[in-house]
Design a protein around this nucleic acid. Structure first.
Length: 1149
RNA sequence: GCGCGGGUGGCUUAGUCGGUUAGAGCACCCGGCUGAUAACCGGGAGGUCGCAGGUUCAAGUCCUGCCUCGCGCACCA
């Protein structure tokens, strides 16, 4: 069988065509029998993964990434590849990863894939580095989102309804609901190849987990860090629920409400202080007035009655005196006044005033109630510069009240109506319905307390529109309401938090120093209790007298229950496996030391507390797994979205600092948000979540993962662009596959076995040594990128290597080497090189995109890439290594990178530049690529003799020469070196620069400069002030390229001979004809070995040489080939093309 | 309002210590090349580097102010 057709293509570029042709193919292997369309599945034919003797690769089929990945998933499962990858590093130094638990009550989206990719790639990378990286999965299963889902489903819109439904049944529904999307999560996790142990995860609702949380809380309790207080929360009286800020954000609406200016009559003074509020219902609860100590206030007297424009209720009489901030007089006052006095707020402090509703709040033992207080947050941006303070109905109010010792007394019940005893006209009424009543009461003569001026206590009413939070379920306005609450005294450990945080390696560092550091510097006590049902119950029991007991384990609970029973308090049984959830734990009544019954505080804990306990609760520490815990705390690496800064990143640290007096994690990668293609945040409510399966099922998980990593720095917001995934697939993975396929198809055909043959590197061609050196250089940079969290740069550079260096140059330049059927050292060298490059490449890519490279690695080496060592070294396996430190030299010695030769890399860069320059020259002068040039000259630069053949082929020239007389083709240009010149020339620098650039005779100027400096516009220019560039002289078909940098830079010119000879024209025409006929063959879908009959007609053609006609016949496998003489016309059915004025027609039959 | 991070051709982005022609990829146009893949090569068009000031011989880069987007905090009386 003949295979010249194939060879013919190889020789198209070659000026030496004919020399490679093999005439005797009889008995040769049929290279057209390759499995063109075979399913890749046939590639995964190695049954063993651990063996290294399965080294003879088999050929590859067309790429079907999705099928490849799904088949591999099955194989991984059968082999327990994940477990195996860990077991084989069992003796390595541990690198501890902690999985942030997701909630499985929502469908996973592409944003989850991003976080999981970064988690996975670091774990896989560290594993390949020889570390033992175990990855326990985790699920966050408590909390409000779960309750809300269930409430929606069961239509339970208030706490009352939940309790009527039954807390038991409700919590059971929650317990089931948290697994709604577990299957979806599991499928996504597996499909994307996030290797994490989902078969033995930690689950926050498990009794063991809850027990550890209890234990942790008791540690805090015992250290005096847990206390009971109030927290002012947005609260919906209709649903009986308070809301987290997140939910509040869902319900902001702009509303217009009455705001009132109220006169607070001073007791020892005739004047009134004017204060403003938008919530009249809080006025009965008023117990203080806050002023800014440094704000300037005025006392002013009403001079005359208000003008006609006065509208609405309220007012003041002539002679009344009013105090308010000076800046706000114009805004507020509707009367002409005389300013009597001016003073800072501090001088008002301590003055007592008449309570508006004397019955509403009992004074208790407060000495500061109904006096003026100071607060530095008081501003004069609106209101009167005096802030009405109702302790229980505003956060600032509450804090001020606690500080100043105001009575903390509710005037409003949990149902949203005034408690009885507030005022006869208000008692029992819903607060929002009382605005008019309150305004009327204040406006009455003497005011609501009868002690005000005749004009009443209301000065003004003004409609005020602002954004106010509403219940997202019932649409009712929320009330800021002080709720009973439990706190962890984080303020007590603030310095520790800051210190621990300083030792965390943050990526990026500004999140740690900035956002997170800022949060810590302003740390507030952590409100950990929630008036909810589904969560870890707060394990605190309390008697009516206020005695408290915190229970830290089941055993302790059992003991306490027994004690209570012994004291005569009835209790249900408390078995070893008692469910530690509500309502079961609510049913236990304990006994205080003085014999009083104690009931559990009816709260569950903030579910963030649960996840903050993960480092130890996942092992049920301290009840079980003590060693396990001790060996894995603090953890080495966590990675989540930046939205966890105040979430998990914080609660981990908060719990570890308070419980263990330690940091929780040593390294934290904080990921940017994932946005949709338009830059909007991906969220369920927006409905713009990208389904990862869209890409898993199209481009595959490899491409999806690689895209996400290369699209930008991990901490930058990622605009997820579906088209980018496609691009990544086409560029990176198709290219890689085709390089692989190219290698492996020939390797299979030739029976190449990397273990049974050798090819010493030093004997390989420059091209081989070049790509190996590039691989070395790129691998080092790649590794460096990983170390510095610059995955995006690392992967972009690697992709460039694959596409550009490997596929586009090495493989393109090497094709002919493998086409040669005879065994040859050069072919073997190429196969070994490809084998080595691909093998190392697979290892480098494996952490990021683990599928295709495993298929490739298995076929090339007979083993999984996920068992392979990191080519840059395996520090984890070094004696005495830890996740933080190891013997650098020893680690370096474990690297397996090929020889690096930077000089060779530089030379090849130059060669490639020259090849490009040659193409540019042809474009410039309009000489087509197929028309050979007689000769080319290389001017200046290093010795490239070894590459002349290569260049001749690339450039399609018959021969390459070195031109030593630089001035024949090059001239000099001078460019100013601003850095050197600027200090000397100062303001003149631009003129001097222009003079240097525009010098009429640059050669002479350079000579003058070299001879001790030239005077340019009065400035002495020395050699260091200029850069000398050599460029091609005009009038030649030439291009100059610059390679290298600074001192080492070179200007090399390429000159092509544009003179035609009959031989060149004939040869060029032969190629054009051949090319067209080959295209026709392909269009006809002819088999490569099929022969044809060819007839050619030409007009205005160069004279064809005999040998070129023969060559055409040979190349096109024409049994019969007729070149009709000039002048005979072609039949109509002939195909015609034109090249350089020659019209060619041909018929293939 | 405060803090952090962005704003560079239609899109995605690179840009070091401030150095004079702002670099890529996608898409587009022209040409070339191809038994090389969803390719490859050469060329072209497309940029007031968010706006306005300032520093400097020189600003995408440094400073100030503003606009705008994202995130977080405080969103108040």
């Amino acid at each position: 069988m003949h295979i010249e057709g194939l060879e013919g293509y190889a020789s198209i570029f070659s000026p030496f065509f004919g020399t490679n042709q093999r005439t005797d193919a009889e008995g040769g292997k049929n290279r057209d029998d390759w499995p063109k369309k075979s399913h890749f599945g046939s590639d995964i034919q190695n049954e063993t993964t651990g063996g290294t003797n399965m080294a003879r690769p088999s050929s590859a089929g067309e790429l079907d990434a999705v099928a490849l990945e799904t088949a591999l998933l099955e194989q991984w499962k059968q082999e327990s590849a994940f477990q195996a990858s860990i077991e084989s590093r069992r003796n390595g130094a541990p690198f501890i990863f902690l999985e942030g638990p997701p909630t499985a009550n929502g469908k996973p989206g592409i944003h989850h894939v991003v976080a999981r990719t970064y988690k996975d790639l670091v774990c896989r990378w560290k594993t390949m580095e020889g570390f033992l990286v175990e990855r326990k999965g985790g699920w966050d299963t408590h909390g409000l989102p779960v309750e809300i889902e269930v409430q929606k489903r069961l239509d339970l819109m208030s706490n009352e309804q939940i309790e009527a439904f039954g807390m038991d049944a409700f919590n059971q529904a929650c317990r089931e609901s948290v697994w709604t999307y577990e299957a979806a999560w599991r499928e996504m996790t597996e499909r994307m190849a996030y290797w994490v142990d989902l078969d033995n995860p930690y689950v926050t609702l498990h009794n063991d987990y809850v027990e550890s949380c209890w234990w942790a809380l008791k540690q805090m309790f015992d250290k005096g860090l847990l206390y009971r207080g109030h927290k002012v929360l947005p609260y919906c009286p209709q649903t009986g629920t308070s809301y987290s800020s997140h939910e509040v954000a869902l319900g902001y609406k702009e509303v217009e409400e009455p705001s009132v200016y109220v006169k607070f009559k001073l007791i020892d003074d005739d004047a009134s202080i004017l204060a403003w509020t938008t919530t009249p219902w809080t006025l009965p609860g008023n117990v203080g007035l806050a002023v800014g100590p440094d704000v300037t206030y005025v006392r002013c007297r009403i001079k005359e009655a208000a003008g006609e424009s006065w509208e609405g209720v309220g007012g003041a009489e002539v002679g009344e005196e009013i105090i308010l901030a000076k800046d706000l007089m114009k805004e507020v006052l509707r009367h002409h006044v005389d300013i009597i006095d001016e003073f800072p707020g501090s001088s008002l402090v301590g003055q007592a005033y008449e309570s508006l509703f004397p019955e509403a709040v009992p004074r208790g033992d407060s000495t500061t109630a109904w006096t003026v207080l100071e607060a530095d947050w008081v501003t004069t941006t609106d209101g009167t510069g005096v802030v009405h303070t109702a302790v229980m109905y505003g956060e600032d109010d509450y804090n001020l009240g606690m500080e100043a010792g105001l009575p903390a007394y509710h005037t409003v019940g949990m149902d949203g109506s005034f408690v009885s005893g507030t005022h006869p006209e208000l008692d029992g009424k819903y607060v929002k319905d009382c605005d008019a009543t309150i305004i009327a009461l204040l406006s009455a003569s003497g005011g609501s307390n009868g002690k005000g001026p005749d004009s009443g206590l209301l000065y003004r009413e003004k409609a005020y529109s602002h954004d106010y939070p509403h219940c997202w379920r019932t649409d009712h306005p929320l009330l800021y309401y002080a709720m009973d609450s439990w706190f962890v005294r984080m303020t007590a450990v603030k310095e520790k938090l800051l210190e621990f945080n300083d030792n965390v390696e943050w990526a990026p560092d500004w999140v740690g120093e900035g956002r997170f550091g800022e949060w810590l510097r302003n740390v507030k006590d952590w409100a950990i209790s929630r008036e909810r049902y589904w969560g870890t119950p707060l394990p605190v029991w309390r008697s009516e007298e206020g005695e408290m007991k915190c229970v830290g384990s089941i055993e302790e609970l059992q003991a306490e229950v027994a004690k209570a029973i012994a004291a005569g308090i009835e209790n249900p049984e408390c078995p070893d496996d008692v469910d530690l959830h509500r309502p079961i734990v609510d049913n236990y009544t304990l006994v205080s030391d003085d014999g009083k019954p104690m009931h559990r505080e009816p709260f569950v804990m903030d579910c963030w507390f649960d996840s903050g306990c993960a480092p130890f609760a996942q092992w049920h520490h301290p009840f079980d797994g003590g060693e396990r815990f001790n060996a894995s705390f603090p953890v080495d690496y966590i990675c989540e979205g930046v939205d966890q800064t105040r979430g998990w990143f914080y609660t981990l640290l908060a719990v570890s600092a308070t419980v263990f007096d330690s940091m929780a994690y040593k390294r934290c990668l904080s990921l940017g948000l994932i946005l949709d293609a338009e830059g909007k945040k991906m969220s369920k409510s927006r409905g713009n979540i990208v389904d990862p399966w869209d890409h898993f099922n199209r481009e595959g998980a490899d491409a999806t993962r690689w895209y996400m990593v290369t699209a930008g720095a991990p901490w930058n917001p990622l605009k997820f662009d579906s088209n980018g995934v496609r691009e990544t697939y086409a560029k990176m993975f198709l290219t890689l596959w085709n390089v692989y396929k190219f290698h492996v198809d020939y390797a299979a055909l030739d029976g190449f076995d990397p273990l049974k043959s050798e090819s010493p590197v030093e004997q390989r061609s420059e091209l081989d040594r070049w790509i190996l050196s590039r691989l070395h250089t790129v691998a080092l940079g790649y590794h460096d990128g990983f170390v510095n969290w610059q995955y995006h740069k690392a992967c972009r550079d690697l992709e460039d290597f694959v596409v550009n260096d490997l596929s586009n140059w090495y493989v393109r330049r090497s094709r002919r080497r493998l086409w040669d059927e005879a065994e040859s050292g050069d072919k073997l060298a190429c196969q070994h090189t490809l084998h080595e490059v691909l093998t190392t490449l697979c290892k480098l890519i494996a952490p990021v995109s683990p599928f295709m490279v495993d298929t490739i690695h298995r076929n090339l080496n007979g083993s999984s890439v996920h068992q392979a060592d990191w080519p840059v070294g395996v520090p984890g396996s070094i004696d005495g290594a830890t996740a933080d430190a190891w013997d650098e030299a020893a680690a370096k010695a474990t690297a397996t990178l090929p020889l690096q030769d930077l000089a060779l890399e530089a030379t090849m860069t130059l060669i490639r530049e020259l090849a490009e320059a040659g193409r540019r020259i042809r474009i410039d002068v309009g000489r087509r690529q197929r028309l050979p040039c007689a000769q080319g000259w290389i001017v200046a630069g290093p010795d490239l003799a070894n590459f002349h053949d290569l260049l001749a082929e690339e450039l399609n020239v018959e021969s390459i020469h070195v031109e030593n007389d630089l001035d024949r083709f090059q001239r000099i240009e001078l460019a100013p070196n601003f850095r050197a010149l600027a200090p000397k020339a100062r303001a003149q620098v631009n003129d001097v620069a222009a003079a240097i650039k525009g010098a009429e005779d640059p050669e002479a100027l350079l000579e003058a400069i070299r001879n001790g400096g030239a005077d340019v516009l009065g400035v002495t220019v020395e050699e260091s002030d200029v850069e000398v560039k050599r460029v091609e002289r005009s009038g030649f078909a030439a291009q100059t390229v610059e390679v290298g940098e600074g001192e080492a830079s070179m200007h090399v010119s390429l000159v092509l001979d544009m003179n035609d000879t009959p031989a060149l024209l004939s040869k060029g025409m032969a190629r054009d004809i051949t090319r067209r006929v080959q295209a026709k063959r392909k269009a006809l879908d002819l088999a490569i070995e099929a022969t044809i009959d060819l007839e050619v007609w030409m007009e205005n053609a160069p004279e064809m040489l005999q040998e070129d006609e023969a060559w055409v016949a040979h190349e096109t496998r024409s049994a019969g080939c007729v070149f009709h003489p000039e002048g005979s016309s072609a039949p109509g059915e002939a195909e015609t093309f034109e090249v350089d004025g020659t019209i060619v027609s041909f018929i293939v039959s």
